[in-house]
Every structure is written in structure tokens, then in C-alpha cells.
Amino acid sequence: MAKQKKTLTTTLIVLLLFVIAVQFIPKAERNDSARGAKAITKQYDVPEKVQSILQKACFDCHSNRTEYPWYSNIQPFAKFMEGHILRGKDELNFDEFGSYAIKKQYNKLRSLENQLENEAMPLRSYTLIHHNARLSNEEISLLTNWSKALRNKMDIKL
């Protein structure tokens, strides 16, 4: 019994030291610039309702304006979030949208529509914690209709 207690105590101490040690792993917050000249809102007409939906459901991972929650300072959550956010910004960044070629913009919007319609975005892991990021059918419809209308305007430029 005493040996089991000593083993358990040793294991808990090692675990605690590990948890403390991983807190020193640096995290990369990438909030480059706020809305610059290349932001989608500077390039195209984005109605206020659409902007509001994008802000609540997309911008934390797909803009330069990520709002990092308190738990983003705690490892291993920080590393997990960092990976998701960096991949999200690399895939689509609404604050860099104007720097994409027109064909890429068109394809990103089409991808946005498909992911919204298939409920692939926002990620379930995100909406579990950020309940306000869950999109209603009306909001999905509003975003996809806006995106399709914007793509139709882009067809002229292609």
C-alpha cells in the first residue's frame, strides 16, 4: 500500500512538473495588421449584416483580428489553437483578401459557400466553446447569397 502511494505521488509530481514545463513553450499570436487596404471590406461591398456574421463566426481564424481567449495562454491549448488559427489564416484571410488574384478570390468564395452549405465551417470544435458563432440557416443563406452575388460580379473581371 505504501509503495502504491509513493508511486502515485511520484507520478503526480512528474505530471505537475510536466504541465508547468510546457507552459514555457512559446505561442505565436499572429495579429499582423488590422483592416488594411487589402481587407475584403475595402475591396468589395460587404453589407453590415454579413460583416457581423463574418466577425462572430469567421474572423478569429480567418482575419488578422483574432480575439485570443484567456485559455490561449495555457499549454497545450495554446499550441492546439495556434495550429488551427495559422492554418485558417493561411487558407483564407479576409484582411488579405484583396491581395489574392481574382481567380483565387472567386475560388475562395465558392469554397466558403460549399463549406457553409455542408456545415463544415465554422468548425464544431470552435462552436462548442463559442456558441455565438453557430450559424442559423438564415445566416448561412445570407452569407452564401452574398458570396454568390459577389462572385457573379467577379465573372465580368475573369
Rank of each mutant, 00 (worst) to 15 (best):
F80C: 01
I85M: 05
T41Q: 12
V19D: 03
N118V: 02
I140D: 05
L54K: 02
A39W: 01
E119G: 08
L16P: 04
T144I: 00
K5I: 12
Q75E: 09
G36F: 05
K5T: 06
K104E: 12
E138P: 07
E117I: 08
K103E: 05
L86H: 11
L142C: 11
S99W: 04
Y126R: 10
T66G: 06
M121E: 06
T144E: 08
T41L: 03
A149K: 06
Y106N: 10
E113M: 12
A2Y: 10
L135G: 07
K79P: 06
E67D: 15
P26L: 03
T144H: 09
T127E: 06
E117H: 00
T144V: 07
D32R: 11
D95G: 09
T10C: 13
R124W: 05
G88K: 09
K104W: 06
T11R: 08
Q23D: 06
P26N: 00
N145P: 00
I25M: 00
A37Y: 00
N132I: 13
T11K: 12
I156N: 00
F80I: 13
M81C: 03
A78Q: 04
E48L: 08
A120G: 01
H131A: 02
M121A: 07
N31H: 04
C61P: 05
I40G: 00
E113R: 13
S72D: 14
I140S: 02
N114C: 02
G88I: 07
T127V: 14
I85E: 05
V46Y: 04
G88F: 09
M154L: 13
A21P: 00
Y44C: 03
L16I: 06
A39R: 01
N118H: 13
A57H: 10
V14I: 11
E119W: 01
P76N: 11
A120V: 09
E117T: 07
L17S: 02
Y44N: 03
T9S: 14
K153G: 08
N107F: 14
R110T: 14
P26F: 07
T127P: 04
F18W: 04
S111L: 14
A39I: 02
I140R: 15
L135C: 10
L112V: 09
K6E: 12
F18H: 02
L158G: 00
A57F: 04
L92A: 12
L128G: 13
T7R: 15
I13H: 05
D32Y: 08
K49M: 11
K153P: 00
L15R: 05
T41E: 08
D155E: 04
K49Q: 12
M1K: 13
E138L: 05
T41H: 05
F97Q: 09
E139G: 10
Y44V: 02
A120F: 09
E117R: 13
Q55M: 10
F77I: 13
V46D: 01
K5V: 14
C58S: 04
R134K: 14
E139I: 12
H130N: 08
G88C: 01
T11W: 10
N93C: 10
M121R: 11
Q23G: 02
Y100S: 02
N145I: 07
L143G: 09
